[in-house]
Simulated scan of single mutants.
Amino acid sequence: MNIPQAPLRSVYLYVFDGFADWEPAFAIAGINSPEFQREPGRWRVQTVAVGSGVVVSAGGLSILPDRQLAALQPADAELLILPGGRGWDQGEHLDSAHKAAAFLEAGVPVAAICGATAGLARIGLLDRRRHGSNAPAYLNGLREQGYGGAEHYVDEPAVIDDEGLLITAGGMAPLEFAQAIFARLRIYREEVLQAWYQLYKTGRSQYFAQMSEAAA
């Protein structure tokens, strides 16, 4: 008897020329790696871009996007990741910020790190939500460009808003960014997630053994 396969759960990574490929690296590696997951093999990362041509990251990786941003719908995704990188500080990539707004409106989570938080700030998405970024001064510099959420700024490496839909982080916190994404999507059991974080935070191999035991 053939048992129907459960549909894959897609997490979309917005990519563009010069995007900071190291910022979502922990997150996308964990999502795409079935080892230790609650439901191994149920998750995949797909890339999305404004155009259909090859995108080159800040680290020189050439990526052919899986989908185009304009065609992406919240119903197709479990989460949208917006990395930092070239252009955000000049007000570019606002199409992706508006796509993030559509996701949040539909109840689909969004995770933004580093410069991507500035894009969300420019269109007012941070005005009433708990959020973080690179530093308070980084977003305060955008007050004349649409940012009015200074009172909701939380000075932590990664922040999840009260609805549990928006994850924001500073560019210095890719590990905490990934941890928050994993927690929101419930990819790992809590014991596994804590061991995973300690493994990469401390570099101590004992936590790999704890991950294996907790996953088993």
Rank of each mutant, 00 (worst) to 15 (best):
P174T: 01
Q73M: 10
G124T: 03
I181Y: 03
R9Q: 15
V15H: 00
T117F: 03
L139Y: 00
G132Q: 06
Q5P: 14
E213S: 15
Q37V: 07
F36N: 15
I28L: 15
A6D: 15
A183K: 07
I181C: 05
A158K: 04
A150F: 04
A169Y: 06
L126A: 13
D95A: 15
V11I: 14
M1L: 10
A58W: 11
T168Y: 08
V110Q: 03
G132F: 07
A214L: 03
Y200L: 15
K99E: 02
D162H: 11
V50N: 10
P157V: 05
R186M: 12
L79M: 14
Y138P: 04
V55D: 08
Q46F: 06
F103G: 00
G119M: 04
R42Y: 09
P174H: 07
Q179L: 10
Q90C: 15
Y12L: 09
R122G: 14
Y12E: 06
A178H: 11
A100N: 03
I31N: 01
Y200I: 01
A180L: 09
A97Q: 07
G119A: 10
A102V: 09
G115N: 10
G53K: 11
I81A: 08
P4K: 01
G53H: 11
T117S: 08
E191C: 05
P4A: 07
S205C: 03
V15P: 07
P157L: 11
E213M: 12
A150Y: 05
L79W: 12
K201L: 13
N140D: 12
I123C: 07
P83N: 08
L126P: 12
L166A: 06
A116C: 05
R204M: 13
R184C: 13
R129S: 13
Y138D: 13
A97C: 02
G59M: 02
A178F: 09
E92G: 14
A97T: 08
A106H: 09
I63N: 07
I31L: 11
Q90E: 14
A214E: 06
A209E: 12
A183I: 08
R38F: 03
A180S: 13
R186S: 13
Q194R: 15
L175T: 14
E39V: 07
V45Q: 05
A100M: 02
A216P: 08
D17Q: 01
L139K: 02
R44Y: 05
L13C: 10
A173P: 02
Q194P: 09
D95H: 13
A6S: 14
S96C: 07
G164R: 04
A121F: 09
A20T: 14
E191Q: 14
L199I: 04
A111I: 03
G60W: 11
P74A: 04
F16V: 04
D76I: 05
D162S: 13
T168G: 10
A112C: 00
A173I: 02
F19P: 05
A97R: 00
Y188N: 08
L72Y: 02
W43A: 06
P65L: 05
L64V: 12
D21N: 15
N2C: 10
D89C: 13
L64M: 12
W196C: 03
A71C: 07
W196D: 00
L185E: 09
P174F: 09
F26L: 12
V54G: 03
L193N: 06
V108E: 10
Q145Y: 04
S10L: 14
D161C: 13
Q46P: 02
F182D: 00
L104S: 07
